[in-house]
Deep mutational scan, measured.
Amino acid sequence: NKFNKELQWATWEILNLPNLNEEQVKAFIDSLRDDPSQSANLLAEAKKLNDAQA
């Protein structure tokens, strides 16, 4: 389904953001699992944090 694909994509993207530490990655992945419908928003937040920590 749509959420499953978005969840998989967001998870992959977050795992590959180079500037997030392990705790941050875990927190984003946990949030994705808690509410897959928020995957686009969570991915945007993760990318923003990744850029800020570059």
Rank of each mutant, 00 (worst) to 15 (best):
N41V: 12
E23W: 09
L49S: 03
L15V: 06
N19F: 08
D34F: 10
L49D: 02
N21Y: 13
E22A: 12
N21F: 12
Q38A: 07
L32S: 01
L49G: 01
W12S: 07
N1Q: 06
D51I: 06
W9G: 03
L42S: 02
P36G: 03
R33K: 15
A27S: 14
S31H: 11
F3L: 14
N1M: 01
K2T: 05
W12R: 05
N16A: 11
L32G: 01
P36N: 03
K5V: 05
D30S: 13
P36S: 09
F28D: 00
N1F: 00
P36H: 04
E23V: 12
N41Y: 11
N41F: 14
K26A: 13
A27E: 11
V25G: 03
A54D: 09
L43W: 04
A40I: 11
A54Q: 13
N21I: 06
A10R: 03
W9I: 15
N41A: 10
R33N: 15
I29T: 04
E45V: 09
Q38L: 09
N4K: 03
L49H: 03
D30G: 11
L32V: 04
K26E: 14
K48A: 13
N19H: 13
A52Y: 09
N41M: 12
E6S: 04
K5N: 11
F3Q: 15
Q38K: 11
A40W: 06
K48L: 13
A46F: 02
L20D: 00
L42V: 12
I14G: 01
K26Q: 10
N41I: 11
S31V: 06
L15F: 04
N19G: 05
L42F: 06
K47H: 10
N16P: 00
T11V: 09
L15N: 09
Q8W: 11
W9D: 10
K47Y: 12
W12D: 15
F28I: 05
T11Y: 09
A54F: 10
E22F: 10
Q38N: 12
A40P: 06
K5E: 15
K5Y: 03
Q38D: 09
L15H: 06
S39M: 14
Q53S: 08
N41H: 12
L15Q: 14
L20Q: 00
E22N: 13
F28K: 00
I14Y: 01
R33W: 15
D35Y: 06
L7F: 11
S37F: 09
V25I: 09
S31A: 13
Q38W: 05
Q24G: 00
Q53I: 10
E22S: 11
D35N: 11
E13V: 13
D30I: 10
N50G: 03
N41P: 07
P18D: 06
L7G: 04
N1T: 03
P36R: 02
K48N: 06
S39T: 08
E45M: 14
V25M: 08
A40N: 11
Q24A: 03
F3P: 15
N21T: 12
D51P: 01
Q53H: 06
I14F: 03
A44T: 11
A10S: 04
N4G: 13
K26G: 06
N19S: 07
D35R: 08
L20I: 04
A40F: 11
P36V: 06
F28Y: 06
S39D: 02
Q53T: 07
A27Q: 12
A40E: 10
L15K: 12
L7T: 05
K2Q: 15
N1K: 04
S37H: 06
E23K: 13
I29R: 02
N4D: 15
Q53Y: 07
Q38R: 10
L49T: 09
Q8P: 01
E13K: 08
N50P: 00
Q24E: 04
L49M: 09
A27K: 11
L17P: 00
Q8S: 06
L49A: 06
Q38Y: 14
N4A: 13
A27W: 10
R33V: 14
L17Y: 07
L43K: 02
F3E: 15
N19R: 03
I29K: 02
N1E: 15
A54P: 10
D30Q: 10
F28P: 00
Q53G: 04
D34V: 10
K26S: 10
P36M: 10
K47I: 08
E23A: 11
F3Y: 05
A46L: 02
P18S: 06
A52W: 08
W9S: 08
P18Q: 09
N21G: 08
A27H: 09
E13Y: 12
N1D: 15
K48R: 12
K2R: 07
E6P: 03
I14K: 00
E23R: 07
K26V: 12
L7Q: 03
L17S: 02
A44N: 07
E13A: 07
N1L: 01
R33E: 13
E23D: 10
L49N: 02
T11H: 04
D35S: 10
Q24P: 00
E6A: 05
K26H: 14
L17R: 00
R33H: 14
K26I: 10
E6Q: 05
D30P: 00
N50D: 11
A10E: 02
A46T: 01
Q24L: 03
L17K: 01
P18M: 13
D30V: 08
A44V: 11
Q53R: 05
N41L: 09
K47S: 05
I29Y: 03
D35V: 05
A52P: 02
L42I: 12
L32Y: 02
D51S: 08
K2L: 06
F3V: 15
E45Y: 11
T11F: 14
A10D: 03
Q53P: 04
A27R: 11
Q38M: 13
I29G: 01
A40S: 13
T11R: 05
D34Y: 11
A27T: 11
N4R: 03
N16H: 12
A52V: 09
D34P: 02
L20T: 00
N16K: 09
I29E: 02
T11K: 04
E6T: 04
L32A: 04
A10G: 03
L49R: 04
D51M: 11
N16Q: 10
Q24H: 03
I29N: 02
K26L: 06
N4T: 07
S37V: 04
N50I: 01
L15Y: 09
A54Y: 07
I29V: 13
A10N: 03
Q53M: 13
D51E: 14
N50Q: 02
L20W: 00
W12L: 07
P36L: 13
K48Q: 11
L20G: 00
A46E: 00
L20F: 01
A44H: 15
S31G: 09
A54I: 09
N1W: 00
A46G: 02
A52Q: 10
I29D: 00
S37M: 08
K26Y: 07
L7K: 01
I29L: 13
P18T: 11
N16D: 04
A46Q: 00
A27Y: 09
P18H: 12
A44Y: 07
I29F: 04
A44L: 12
K2Y: 10
N16V: 04
N50M: 01
D35A: 09
K26F: 06
L43T: 05
K26P: 00
E13M: 14
D51T: 08
Q8H: 04
Q8I: 10
E13W: 09
I29H: 03
N21R: 08
A46M: 02
W12E: 15
A44G: 07
A52M: 13
P36T: 05
